[in-house]
Design a protein around this nucleic acid. Structure first.
Ligand code: FES
Ligand code: FES
Lengths: 147, 147
DNA sequence: ACTAAGTTGATAAAATTAGTCAACAATATA
DNA sequence: TATATTGTTGACTAATTTTATCAACTTAGT
């Protein structure tokens, strides 16, 4: 029961993009370097984000990627679902047919409640929230140095 | 991001055990049949449950397994953690060393909140709750038949 | 003794994850 | 227009995890 590297990396990449975005598109290469993610791998993570209208891309020199919407309108639920697939912890939550007797299975309800709880958290966190948290964290560590 | 069959099956097996328990130990074979789980596989799922003191086993003829505690004292969090490992959706939540820069990573916080939300749900559901839900569900379908 | 159970470890097929590589397409700019 | 720069796509592969199966072993009741 893990979030795969795809979900993790994509989230970090988006946060990185949001933090470094100002006018000019951001280079994939730079995101990869800053986040220590293989560029070749990152390329594949970007594709679904473009398709979903979360980021836009520009090719050629001075190209790169940019957020397609303001960060407060990008929820983590969208990102995670895109990269990890539907958040149903067990198959029969989204697709009851896979289990015979699913109409009277009490455990299935629990997995669904789990799904709802996760969705609740993910929906409540937007890219903007992440940016703020990140800045707070960085301030905190700077203060540490200062002391 | 799935609960593996280990977690699912173990939960169903425990619920089945709880529902069929009265005095005599319950045969693994019967649980396997009712739940349509391979017996050979089920055997491996119950081992950790025994080790964790959730069930007890009796060997030999008239043997089987029984709950080691009343069902209201068995939380799903315990079961799931046992079969799926620690509920940390990403490695660095439980083990910050795996990510350089983890001290100032905002995404990590989210994965931890996700963990807490899941734990909250799982902790709130005991085997007793599952039993009640299951009985309600079965009543509901019986009424359906009656109509 | 014999049989009915649970226990354990080795092994393996299947699926998923994580990643690489190379060819390709688009575009700014010299 | 030539070229360098950037993103796009698909094929491929290694590693890991999941999902089992099988056989040998242990324990206990009759
Ligand atoms: S219906 Fe799928 S596990 Fe019960
Ligand atoms: S610290 Fe592990 S993903 Fe950020």
């Amino acid at each position: 029961m893990k979030v795969s590297t795809k979900g993790q990396y994509a989230t970090r990449a988006l946060l990185d993009l949001a933090l470094h975005q100002d006018e000019a598109p951001v280079l994939l290469k730079h995101i990869a370097q800053r986040q220590k993610i293989s560029l070749s791998y990152l390329e594949h993570l970007i594709t679904p984000l473009i398709a979903a209208g979360i980021i836009t891309s520009t090719r050629g020199p001075r190209g790169g990627i940019s957020l397609a919407r303001p960060p407060e309108e990008i929820g983590l639920d969208e990102v995670v679902q895109l990269l990890e697939g539907a958040i149903s912890l067990v198959e029969c939550v989204g697709n009851p047919k896979v289990c015979t007797m699913s109409q009277s299975c009490a455990t299935r309800e629990v997995w669904d409640e789990l799904r709802q709880a996760m969705m609740g958290v993910l929906k409540s966190v937007t890219l903007r929230d992440l940016m703020e948290r990140q800045r707070e964290k960085e301030n905190a560590t700077e203060i540490m140095y200062y002391i």
